[in-house]
Nucleic acid binder design. Structure first.
Lengths: 198, 198, 198, 198
DNA sequence: AATGAATGAGCATTCATTCAT
DNA sequence: AATGAATGAATGCTCATTCAT
């Protein structure tokens, strides 16, 4: 019989992920110390290696947890609602989850800008550059005539993602007064109507 | 009498900055090795410390050089031109300079996302969150009725910066097919007109 | 009632010894991992500690098994045969057993050269420096006038052992083309007649 | 100007090699700690890495020093002398040098028996299985009719090397009473005349 | 007996920075 | 100013062994 039950093991894994998110958030990927994560999770320094292969593996697992959490929170999108509302609920869910792991998210963003693609591949299992869910909403809206059709759905999706990511960056700039909560509304406004006088 | 003339010293400093930009670009801030920078500049490994106090100091100096270069390239903006053209020339100049130091820019972006504000203060001399030049153009355009007036010039400026930065991020994502050259036109289109059908 | 029968236990022990021999052979004493041995034997990683006290204890047990096997294979020596034939059958039996555990034998040899005598004592139960069986054959041959009598039987025995061990070493040198099978004949030739012209 | 002169640097290297030989001798290759070697040489723990790339590199360097020392001590061989005398002076020189680094030699022998060829390649720059100097002497002696000609010079050289190595092994066996000094004479006697009654 | 999670000592290597020359 | 040897703090990861179940 194992020394701890499967449920204890799962709990330990949770605690490690949680401690890791905090540690990465506070110190960044390079700055975080594996031993500290393990100890912060209430385990001995080496124990984390019973759960993860390496520091990069821990990082990857935290990202995955974030990703799952996002899908979970997004929930179902109502296809019949105006594009505005559909996008709003997606953006709000995203910002909510991002807020939950606020500081880790910043670190994760940071690592995407890692110098070498090889290292990056080590950190992210895969990176789907276009968000499928958003693209679906965009396509429907184009079909319904709500969004421009002179740009492909991929292009319009990237526009939304770029704008959102840019806002997040802005939010993370030192001394920024842009809060996470305002982002969805701002993004929607700018995304849909642009800056030109109508 | 100094052992090397002032001009030699200036040249050594240039070479160090140049080597540093390349090294930071290739390996990131953490990954770059001070020794390598000094040697790549044709000097002995310790010599860089006669020019800079620390690795962070070198980084800061590279950023400053980049910043100066940006202002230099932008040149004068024609106040009378349509807002579209004014913004285009700013964006094109920015992308040109970014292109010149492509990889370093990515690293610099990355470091702005550093976990702790203290460390960041160590890296960046100051960080003016809103670009004054762009804001001026926006204000004029609002006055001329070319841009919406229900948002402040600060807000519209941030919109432009966020979108541009988001596009840069997109450009730097692994396997992205978005090139630097296309960014100004895309940004302008999205910025001015948004995604909604007109 | 024990949870496994005595015969199951004996079989587990066998499997562990066998897996250990393979592991030590492939990785050496230091390189071998206790966990791997246990798992390779089809048991859980900690189970090996129900059979052996420590890694050194496992190693010792493998050596003992090898030693028993050697005696078993040698069988009876025909006292009446020429010394040449007696020695040949001993050497051939030894090389056969060595061949059976080829790679482990190399590791065992290696460990005999361990730096500290204390560690060695931990690894080998005892080490009888002169092989009694060979010495008996040598003594008989001296009595029969077949071997020189100006050297003691101990000396002549050591000569044989040194030469054989030296050949094994040679066989184990990287890129050696000396095979185990040729060793008995070569050893006999050199041992009996030396290198000088007769 | 460097902080220490070239001669100081050379001396440091010597001290490191010396400390390394002692450390490897006492603890074996695996057991030796790089830090300890550096500190034992009177330098800070990291300084050894200014002289060598890795632990394996240090080991290699000690082997090379041993090898050079052997050539140096062997000196010139008198081609005209009887084969017996030529071989004796080679063997005596070898045993003398081996004696000088007695314990390290044992460790080096041990590592030649390393399980994997790749690791070995990491330790030894190259391994010439037949000693050229001895082979030359053997060839001359065969030409002069002093040694058997039914075996190639390579074979007879290997015979000598195997016997010598076997004796060294014997000498290193725990509780052996065979001294290094006796080895040359014993080897010569056995090598030339074998064990059979003449 | 069997299991396998937990433990924590142990270690090679890196590299920013110092400073004697 | 330039040099480059010396320094030593710092850390990811391994693995023999323990022991609760």
């Amino acid at each position: 019989m194992p020394r701890v039950s499967a449920s204890t093991k799962a709990e330990h894994r949770e605690r490690l992920l949680s401690a890791a998110a905090a540690e990465f958030a506070a110190k960044g990927l390079d700055g975080a110390r594996v031993d500290d994560i393990s100890v912060a999770a209430g385990l001995a320094k080496g124990t984390i290696y019973n759960y993860f292969d390496s520091k990069a593996d821990v990082f990857r697992a935290v990202i995955e947890a974030w990703s799952s959490r996002t899908e979970e929170v997004r929930g179902e999108i109502d296809d019949e609602a105006p594009v505005e509302d559909q996008l709003r609920s997606i953006l709000e869910a995203d910002m909510q989850v991002t807020g939950e792991i606020e500081e880790f998210a910043r670190t994760a963003f940071r690592e995407v800008l890692t110098a070498s693609p090889e290292e990056l591949a080590d950190l992210l299992p895969s990176w789907d550059p276009v968000d499928a869910e958003i693209q679906r909403v965009v396509e429907n809206a184009q079909a319904a005539g709500e969004l421009r059709s002179d740009r492909s759905s991929i292009e319009l999706t990237r526009f939304l993602l770029s704008l959102t990511n840019g806002m997040l960056l802005e939010h993370w700039f030192p001394d920024s007064d842009l809060t996470l909560e305002e982002i969805p509304e701002l993004v929607l406004d700018y995304y849909l109507d642009g800056a030109r006088t109508r």
